[in-house]
Structure formats: C-alpha cells, structure tokens
C-alpha cells in the first residue's frame, strides 16, 4: 500500500496535514502530529503496516504494541478518506 499521489501532504515540526484533491467528495482535512508525519512519509512508497511499525520503532522509544496500534489507527483513517492505494 502507499499514499495516493493526488493527496496533498504537509509535515513540519508537530503539524501534519493531509488533504484530498480539491474535486474529491471528501471536503475535510486530516490533521495530526509528528508521528502521523512520519507515517505518511513512509507511505510515500509501497509498504505495509508491519514495515511502517518497524521503521517507526527505530525513531521512537515506545513499545511495539503501542506503535503498531498507532500505525493501524492512522492507516484506517487514511483508508477511510480514500487516500491509500492498496
């Protein structure tokens, strides 16, 4: 899976935003923190939840299960707005 190319992303410091294309049905915006920024950066190329989790564990000092749950939740939200190419 990977993030669709036509979704706009921004990540700086603790601000992360994901926007659908302007003509898509979803008119909202996903807003998150630095962790979400890390996840969407990893989603810029083909990957899996497990690969993202392992990459995040190298960055953050947190238990495996916690990171895995965070990644799962983030990917679920992104799937919900149609941002993920499977």
């Amino acid at each position: 899976m990977r993030l669709k190319d036509n979704f706009l992303t921004y990540s700086k410091d603790n601000d992360t935003y994901i926007l659908p294309p302007v003509d898509s049905g979803f008119t909202g915006m996903i807003r998150g923190n630095e962790t979400l920024g890390g996840i969407i950066a990893l989603l810029s190329h083909d990957t899996s939840e497990e690969e993202i989790t392992r990459a995040m564990l190298e960055e953050y000092d947190a238990p495996y299960e916690t990171v895995k749950a965070d990644v799962k939740r983030a990917v679920k939200i992104l799937r919900g707005i149609g941002a993920v190419d499977e």
Binding site: L8, Y10, L19, M29, R31
Partner: peptide, 13 residues
Amino acid sequence: IASSVRMTMYYDS
C-alpha cells in the same frame, strides 16, 4: 485554522 491551512495547501499545489 482548517480553512486557512486547506486554502494555503491548495494554493501551493
């Protein structure tokens, strides 16, 4: 906040 961020990102794009 959301409105301004959205407009800025769309304009940038």
